[in-house]
Design a binder for these strands. Structure first.
Lengths: 210, 210
DNA sequence: TCAAAACCATACAGTGCTGTATTGTATAGT
DNA sequence: ACTATACAATACAGCACTGTATGGTTTTGA
């Protein structure tokens, strides 16, 4: 070993990656989201994500200052995605309360506008981060208030409305937490019965299914 | 620095720890449980726990082969603690179905025999461990079947009984997941209303509170 | 009382992950 | 063609944590 000078120096390597394959900040955020959903915050490790993206950490530190920055980006992403749909339904003036409830419940049933896995991952995260916990609590509170309002519009006395809102919301969060993945057909079949129990028979009768 | 020979050798230190302060395997498991509850599996780090116990990792590796062994012990502990209470109530022959339901709901309300924080921590863990997820799913299933049976005993048709059991269970899991800590007084006040919604008015009327 | 068993402290080797520094390559705009 | 910009690769320093080796201390009990 003649004082081996042949050590590779930084940058001396692989040309590679023509335009199309290069990544943007969003690719990293998306991959981080995957990781978060799959294994919790602690699984959001930049070198593992880099491996997954088949790229090195050099790229990451170009797009982000540090790990904390992606995590912040994830929170932002979640807030902007999973808050709106409920509010929009609650605001509608063209339909009655039972229909609103139905529409909100369908957000869950259909899982299109609402990404429950992301939601669950945030809940997970909240267990170890005060900041996230606070944001989450605020949003849960908001969503429950929306349901409460709908129950009030249905004619339930305020106290009962509050509790029905809780039952509805807790129930759905629990469902996601358990991570039950039953087939869509079975779920749709059970759906009306859930509505009868959660919203009451009289109200459920006024909901029109498609 | 005269070739400083004064390097401490292993074992050359602190007498300390008279009987009472020495720890057993159980102390480690208990501390690990705390850590698990507070920050998830990834927070179960033996040197942090050691610091907390004001002892060194030497002790740990005396009691356990490695980290995996405490984790296994935690699973075992949880299984032996949080499974039984529900089954015992369900088996009772001296009370009717509504009373059984009440008793089971009270397990949750009073949080004595049932340690929900431990339960939630396991759910958390399950997200990153297939093995834990399986055990958890099995236990959730079991508990829901117990509720289903109670609803059947109440006279509900099997299909509705199944769904009511789900609503009850999901609801409670959701409640814990949200980590809501309202004062006991408010909870007790709302309790009857919850029962009316979850078990139905007719059944709730047959429950006697103390 | 003295030897074995139980328990604890320290050092050390090793690994996984973060963050920084530095240099290379591809593309757009001039 | 030249340069700025955007991106990527490599190396390196450093910390947090695991696991092992080893030698010490305390307790038990024959």
């Amino acid at each position: 070993m003649t004082t081996s000078r042949s050590r590779k120096r930084p940058g001396t390597a692989l040309p590679k990656k023509d335009r199309a394959e290069r990544l943007g900040r969003m690719d990293w955020i998306a991959a981080a989201r995957e990781a978060l959903i799959k294994g919790g915050v602690h699984a959001v490790k930049i070198d593992l994500i880099a491996n997954r993206l088949k790229i090195t950490r050099g790229s990451f530190y170009w797009h982000f200052k540090n790990r904390a920055e992606v995590l912040a980006a994830l929170i932002e992403l979640w807030e902007s995605q999973n808050t709106g749909p409920f509010e929009e339904i609650a605001k509608r003036a063209d339909i009655g309360a039972p229909e609103k409830y139905l529409a909100m419940a369908k957000l869950w049933l259909e899982e299109k506008a609402f990404d429950w896995q992301f939601d669950s991952a945030m809940r997970d995260w909240a267990r170890s981060s005060r900041a996230v916990a606070r944001k989450l609590a605020a949003i849960d509170d908001l969503r429950m208030k929306l349901f409460e309002q709908v129950f009030i519009e249905m004619g339930y006395p305020p106290y009962e409305a509050g509790i029905r809102a809780r039952v509805t919301y807790y129930h759905q969060v629990g469902y996601y937490t358990l991570g039950i993945r039953e087939d869509q057909r079975a779920r749709r079949e059970m759906f009306p019965m859930y509505l009868r129990i959660l919203a009451g028979d009289a109200q459920a009768d006024q909901m029109t299914f498609d």
